[in-house]
Design a protein around this nucleic acid. Sequence first.
DNA 1: TGCACTTTGGCAACAGCGTTGCGAAAGTGG
DNA 2: CCACTTTCGCAACGCTGTTGCCAAAGTGCA
Lengths: 357, 357
Amino acid sequence: MPRAGAGGANLLALRSHNTALVLDLLRTAGAAGISRLELAERTGLTPQAVSKITARLRADGFVAEAGRRASTGGKPATALRLVPEAGLAVGLHLDRDELRAVLVDLTGAVRAEHRAPLDLGAGQDAVVEEAVRAARTLSDGWAPEAVLGVGAAVPGPLDHRSGVLHRVTGFPEWDGFPLRDVLARRLRLPVVVDKDTNAAALGLAVTGSGAESFAYLHLGTGLGAGLVFGGSVHRGARTGAGEFGHQVVQMDGPPCGCGGRGCIEALCLAAVERGDLEGAARTLGVGAANLVALLDIDLVLLGGRTVARAPEPFVRGVREVVGARASWDVPVRIAAGGVAEGAAQLLLAPVFGRGVG
Amino acid sequence: MPRAGAGGANLLALRSHNTALVLDLLRTAGAAGISRLELAERTGLTPQAVSKITARLRADGFVAEAGRRASTGGKPATALRLVPEAGLAVGLHLDRDELRAVLVDLTGAVRAEHRAPLDLGAGQDAVVEEAVRAARTLSDGWAPEAVLGVGAAVPGPLDHRSGVLHRVTGFPEWDGFPLRDVLARRLRLPVVVDKDTNAAALGLAVTGSGAESFAYLHLGTGLGAGLVFGGSVHRGARTGAGEFGHQVVQMDGPPCGCGGRGCIEALCLAAVERGDLEGAARTLGVGAANLVALLDIDLVLLGGRTVARAPEPFVRGVREVVGARASWDVPVRIAAGGVAEGAAQLLLAPVFGRGVG
DNA sequence: TGCACTTTGGCAACAGCGTTGCGAAAGTGG
DNA sequence: CCACTTTCGCAACGCTGTTGCCAAAGTGCA
């Protein structure tokens, strides 16, 4: 049961918990579906409880029958599947120079997409206007009650609980801007705001990275991380977790813009600039290995523009360093999935009991 | 609701959850007690639900009345308090050269203590014998049904789920030893095994560090950490989390026994050996600052023999480095509370809904 | 072809959870 | 003395998952 908030749980909380659990299994099962009995086994609930829950979900339009399974010697099981368009969410990625927006359904599939150049420094009104227009365009034509809300991913730092931005690196005019409330008022929809790296990590966690806990390392104009423990994103009290770029790995190293010396970001980006991708990858690897050892992590995923331009050397370099340090097998892969998709999961994930934390 | 295990929750799970919540508030309230109405407000449950829960707890002997509060204009509230000796647990700290054992009650108070020299290299039988004797001596004379079990803290690495030790540093003969099951069979009591740093961190988390998430850094013959996020210990899938000593903070630094270069432990202990406590503290501080930034941590606690011998310079040095790096206020203090006390909490904490994870 | 058997899943009655409505107990204050 | 407030228990209630039972729909053997 939840430790968040007051914590007292009543029958309604019990029901939503079990319902979310069932929905999560239905989502994982995909279009092939899953039988009631299998749901019962996987959740630990009795078959009859599952029957009641799925009956409610069918009445509400979230679940439909998906044909019959082959018999195993008795009455063949009827498979149940999620109705993808019963729940939709808009995901916005407000990057420094681009806006990407997607409409994602319950299964995590992208149903519509929108892309436009953006200048985060062009003023709050212009940026908000662009975001509102994108969200409206994408959700237009769908059943209004199916649209659960809008998730917005921003470079950070920010506070994900209040949805207020802080001193976005390079754009101080955003400091204190209540992005969540402004968007919510304009769109008349629930809005959730989070750091870009956290959104990306959430997306990867939900759409099946295959690991319970992993680190997503994002190397673009800067270097950040999204941390997932036990299937949920670790944000910390100030949404500050994942400050990976300014981890010191060279105590007496060159000074960094942050005031410290020998930060990974500075070392890594300097190596990239002088064309030494292998050096950059090894430095990234040292940081990744620190993180893997400290947090007992199962998987490392790499993303971001700089990595996307040359995936091979980064994966190889990080894999080598991490492999030499960790005593268990830690796969290192390129992350499949964008930031905007993850932002949409800020609204979709709670449906499946994967809270915003 | 819990994401652990299958996850399906029934009415019994609901009840234990709410009961644990109430017990946790009663524990925090201490001997002064807390009224039913305040329990209701704090948990979010209705007063009537709290009345039912506390009635059960009183019938079971876990709770007793603790006098009356002053009236605030109506019927004065009756305060309820935890009965400390209704639940007891033995905590064992099997260190490399010493055994410390305590008997702890529900409030976290130590009711009996035992200390003896120990040689982890003296063979499994001798060590187990010593541990069994200590546990029996401490729990002797108390109501058998009140003794919840035995928690054992060991240097690690190990697997806390199965309670099997791995290659304890310096004592390879313990590799694969099923400590939990061996002790449980001998003592006929539930036994939980964990790393010493995790046990210490759990103890600090339960007995009120005042912070939701903190790092406990233990500098003794080695350097390790216990990580607490949102009130519960982060262990990772392999009980490997907290591997703080071999974080690399000097990529081209001196080689360490682990095969890496520039590990904090090597740098720190080398500085201690040459009498440079300030240097050791600053190195420790760099690692602590990395950790604070990466995980968005509220508090840093220092412990272990090396720190205990000279607390001042360590606290000062770490505080300086962390203060310079973090943008929020991160207190740095000496940890109050031993490893054995924390080990006992491995059994006591679940009573209050603070799971082993 | 028929019948025993297995497996799936719904219906109805049930126990137990927190909730609601109401009233008793025990103070304060005019 | 009495109106009022606050605390808290009793009883009825709604809703949860559970249990017992049975119908539906297959397989497999005689």
